[in-house]
Simulated scan of single mutants.
Amino acid sequence: MTAPMTTTAPRTPPRGKPPGLKWISDIEQWKGHDMQGHRYRVTVEHLAAPRNDQPVQPPLSFEVINHDEIIGIVERARAGGEFEEEEAAAMAVGLKLFTEVMLKRRSDPLFAEFEPAMRSFIGKLKARTRAAAAASAAAG
């Protein structure tokens, strides 16, 4: 006798944004599909001050949840070759941390006014990174 087949729905929505959702306005509802997001601990270490009479500050550490997989985004930004590796990492992490706050506070006028410019910037950045990665792959 064969056991009946059972299927379990995935705990998280499929990777990428489902069709029909606007960039910021509907993503929070989509995220509500039992999705916890990726959990990160961010640590910033102050290694040196510009002057000898300024103290080095203690490390700052905090935890965040982000709907994107930030490490993969950093790897793609670095692979694009448009920026130095450290610069690509700083930009990608900074943007992802900032835009997650924007998503959570999208009804705040401070962020609502900024959303169209940020959407445009991120679209251009993604296109540029993809083009640079494709050119790099073709060259070698």
Rank of each mutant, 00 (worst) to 15 (best):
V42Y: 12
I24M: 15
E85V: 12
I71A: 13
M1K: 05
F121E: 05
A77S: 14
E45A: 09
R105P: 03
T43Q: 13
T7R: 12
E63M: 11
S136C: 01
M1D: 07
G32R: 10
L95D: 01
L110G: 15
A112V: 13
A79M: 02
G123F: 03
P58I: 08
I73C: 06
P14I: 09
R11G: 09
L125F: 12
P4R: 07
V74W: 05
N66P: 00
V93K: 01
E100S: 03
K17I: 15
D108E: 13
I24Y: 15
E69V: 02
F98N: 00
E45I: 07
P50N: 03
E82V: 14
T12M: 14
T2S: 09
P55T: 02
A137K: 08
I122P: 02
M102S: 02
Q54L: 13
F62N: 09
A137L: 06
A127C: 01
K22S: 15
S25A: 15
D68E: 11
V44S: 11
K104H: 14
W30T: 13
K96E: 10
D34Y: 13
R11K: 12
D53V: 02
Y40E: 04
A89M: 06
S61M: 12
E75F: 04
L97S: 01
E100M: 02
E100N: 06
G123T: 08
G94L: 00
V44R: 12
P116Q: 06
R105H: 15
K96F: 08
M5C: 05
E69I: 00
K124A: 08
Y40I: 09
A131H: 08
P18G: 10
R39N: 03
E45T: 13
R119T: 12
R39A: 12
F114N: 04
L103P: 00
E113A: 14
E28V: 14
D108V: 03
F121K: 01
P10E: 10
M35C: 12
L97D: 02
T99L: 08
F83E: 08
G80D: 03
E82G: 14
V42M: 15
T2P: 07
G123H: 04
M1Y: 04
W30R: 11
L47M: 07
E85Y: 05
P55Y: 05
H46V: 00
K124G: 13
E63V: 10
T129L: 08
G81Q: 06
V64T: 11
N52V: 06
A77E: 08
K104Y: 08
L125N: 03
L97C: 03
L47R: 11
G94Q: 00
A138H: 07
T7S: 09
R15T: 14
K17D: 15
P58K: 14
I70C: 01
R41F: 05
R15L: 14
R51V: 02
R130K: 14
A134E: 15
R11T: 14
I65L: 11
A49W: 09
R78I: 12
Q29H: 10
M35P: 04
A138I: 04
Q57W: 07
